Amino acid sequence: MTETTAMPQDRGASARQGVRRFGRVNWLGLQTLILRETRRFIAVWTQTLLAPLATAALFLLVFSLAVGTRRGDVMGVPFVHFLAPGILMMTVIQNSFANVSSSIVISKVQGNIVDTLMPPLSATELVVGYLAGGILRGMMVAVAIAALMFPFIGLGIHNPVAALVWVALGGAFLGALGIVAGVFANKFDQMAAITNFIVTPLSFLSGTFYSIEGLPPLMQALSHANPVFYLIDGLRHSVLGVSDSSPWLGFVVVALTTLGVAGIGWWMFRTGYRLKS
């Protein structure tokens, strides 16, 4: 009876598979995915970075001209200053969501999603890679808005470190939601429906343009159930030093929600849900 001896290269392959099985990170693959997602939006910077800056400036200009002169102070600060952090966070989360969801949907529609799924990347590495692109785009948009718009309206930042943390957390939450939406949607019209009926209401009905203190009790309760409210309120606290709720409570709520949504995205990648069919 002849005993079959494994070739050295076979033993090496088995060792590499064992390394991955025990959770070692594929740093080269992860770095490549992050670079791809970053270069993807930088290549069209006028659309992904300049356009959000112009949109945020228009929001601030229209609301300040139409309402600001008659509104007076809100929570002890000028109305324009009250608006600025909310508009910044709204722009960040919309761009983070769009970056991740569009990348996945375009790959699915064009049929090249297999190029992302075939390399030896674990579900965790896929989630981290996509989230990194969404967070980085959101942070670049936030820095541009803060650098160009805040000095123009005479607004400083009360706690810059906390502001960066909230921006990164907002990018992570909506980036994770973008993974779930991108995997779930098989067509662009499905993606548009998710954006119009989920993401836009979450961002507009979250205290971006108003303080929830003036809302009826039912609307206040609904606002507190919206994670985006805590993102905007947390950033407003880090910029202005005032907020509608405890920033620590908001941080816990958003962090747990982000982990939950990212976990759903991890499960989708792990099982191949709507990706391998």
Rank of each mutant, 00 (worst) to 15 (best):
T4F: 05
P8E: 08
G12W: 04
S14K: 13
R16Q: 11
G18R: 14
V19S: 14
F22D: 12
R24K: 09
N26P: 12
L28R: 07
L28H: 05
R39T: 02
F41L: 03
I42V: 12
Q47D: 06
A54E: 08
F59T: 08
F63W: 11
S64G: 04
S64L: 00
L65N: 12
A66C: 07
G68R: 07
V74N: 07
V77I: 07
V80P: 02
G86F: 01
M89C: 05
M90R: 02
T91R: 02
V92T: 00
K108P: 11
G111F: 04
N112T: 13
N112M: 04
M118C: 01
M118A: 10
P119M: 00
T124W: 05
V128R: 04
L131N: 00
G134Y: 00
G134I: 02
L136T: 01
M139K: 01
V141K: 04
A144S: 13
L148A: 15
M149W: 07
I153A: 05
G154Y: 08
G171Q: 03
G175V: 05
A181F: 04
A181K: 02
V183N: 07
A185L: 10
D189H: 05
Q190C: 07
M191Q: 14
A192D: 12
N196T: 09
F197E: 00
P201V: 11
G207P: 06
G207I: 09
G207C: 11
T208A: 14
F209Q: 14
L218F: 11
Q220D: 06
Q220S: 11
A221Y: 06
L222W: 06
S223L: 08
H224M: 11
N226M: 12
L235Y: 06
R236F: 05
S238Y: 03
S246W: 14
S246A: 09
P247Q: 08
P247G: 06
W248A: 15
L249S: 13
L249P: 14
V252N: 12
V253H: 14
V253S: 14
A262C: 10
K276H: 13
K276P: 02
